[in-house]
Amino acid sequence: MNFSLFLTELWNARLSLLSGLGDTILISVASVVLGSILGVFVGLAMTYGAKWLRFIVRLYIDFLRGTPVFVLILACFYILSVVGLDLTAFQAGVLALTLFCSSHVGEIVRGALSAIPQGQTEAAKSIGLTFGQTFVYVLLPQALRQILPTWVNTATEIVKASTLLSIIGVVELLLATQQVISRTYLSLEFYLFAGFVYFLLNFVIEQAGRAVERRISIP
């Protein structure tokens, strides 16, 4: 390994790598935020929906969780364009990761809600809270605490899955790295570097998750 050559090339490539990292972060944040919002609704429908709705949502969850993310990405990019919905590679990729994220969050939310004792809902009802109020003030705060560790885990999965967007030509960190490697022939060095950056990203996410967990834990 030629360290000084690597550092020189790393400095030369800093802008394209940074822009790749920016895209990776943007993709991950967008997918996790949108996927979590959608996922809460999925979890709610699973827990409180009518029978037919639960059936449809169960299909939705099982289909998305049973499909490799890679295939989801290709499907969002190609199949949607056949039916006339022409998304850019970036949009299609975020859509695929959002759907994937929502199915996981939906399942987590469902699990957390059903783990809250029935008595909590009844107590909330008996002091006169409506369903919406019960959810917001009683169920959600308890469910969120339960969800957090698994949810952080999902977020790190999304960061890792974002590398798959390179297949449809989104220049995120991995593809940006590969572009530099193809020019410099320093494959080992730059792959190690990219791996380190991904580790760092996920490390930060996990530490942030732990910190929040400690802050909001119920005595």
């Binding site: 220049v171 530099v180 193809s182």
Partner: peptide, 14 residues
């Protein structure tokens, strides 16, 4: 593509 010189690749100026 963008990762195979001399066919298609990203140079130092991106």
């Amino acid at each position: 593509g963008s990762t195979n010189p001399p066919w298609h690749f990203v140079d130092g100026d991106n």
